[in-house]
Nucleic acid binder design. Structure first.
Lengths: 151, 151
DNA sequence: ATAATTCAGGACAAAAAAATCTCTTAGGAG
DNA sequence: CTCCTAAGAGATTTTTTTGTCCTGAATTAT
């Protein structure tokens, strides 16, 4: 329901990075291990988030990925527009190309307000908040991590 | 966002069948044409809806697909549990296997009420209602059908 | 009976999504 | 300067989803 694996990995990774000390790059390898996600695949996703999104990358020793300056407030909506594509918010639940108040599918008027709620929620949630939630220890970013918890 | 193509086709087809006179089987070919959907693929989906769902099928001349007796009130939730699988309602937005109030992902408590609304909506919408909406002519089931409208 | 029609069912093919591999490029440390 | 490390980038593979094809079984009209 709702998100592609790619988007899920992206969001998880960004939240994880946001939990780490700003300015200290996080290794792809460590993120992948922590989230229990394929490292090579995650690398592609992070690459993309660097090109068009809130991430910055550094090569070589002490390299890794960081949130760019001021990007802690990046919303999930902004992330998902990158990972799911720009039509993310527009799609009709029945898959019609054209579905608006004027040309509506039979679910449109029931679905529209619910969809609105989803979009509001995604616009309200940002990485910093989510990271803080994780840092309380009450929430988990991945299934039974098996490895170390962060400070 | 939200539904697989398979589910979209299934819902569209069921609504279309529900708009047709009860007891008069509708041809797969006609549904596919009306919805502008690949016929052979739709056939598989309808087959599945016959085995486990609200549809009934008849072979030979005068054959086709009908809603079973009493199945006009089938909800979208019932349909989607078939097409998306029984875990449809359980899935975590971040993809965690385990995500409940006790073991929550960082989005869980924001997402849960919205998800609830989606599930309520899906439980409230049934084929009969949706079919009636379509019959008013104010809603469309497919993109620019090009072929005939039903009576 | 026979032919025509329609769904059933399995094998197969194409496309998309997810995941892997390999090599290159850049940066830091000795 | 050289080596090591980590991301960049492209090709490739695997898996899943979507879509096609063909043959068989059931039903009905002739």
């Amino acid at each position: 329901m709702v998100l592609s694996r790619t988007s899920q990995y992206a969001v998880q990774a960004l939240i994880y990075i946001a939990t780490q000390p700003a300015g200290e790059p996080v290794l792809n390898r460590d993120i992948a291990e922590r989230l229990n996600v394929p490292a090579a695949y995650l690398a592609k996703i992070l690459q993309n988030l660097c090109k068009h999104g809130p991430l910055d990358s550094f090569r070589g020793r002490l390299g890794g990925f960081c949130l760019r300056e001021g990007m802690h407030r990046t919303t999930l909506m902004q992330v998902l527009l990158l990972t799911e594509g720009p039509d993310f918010t527009k799609s009709c639940i029945l898959g019609l190309k054209e579905c608006s108040d004027a040309t509506a599918c039979p679910m449109h008027f029931k679905w529209a307000p619910v969809k609105k709620k989803i979009l509001v929620m995604l616009n309200e949630m940002n990485l910093e908040e989510l990271a803080k939630a994780v840092q309380t220890g009450k929430y988990r970013l991945a299934d039974l991590p098996a490895s170390a918890m962060s400070a």
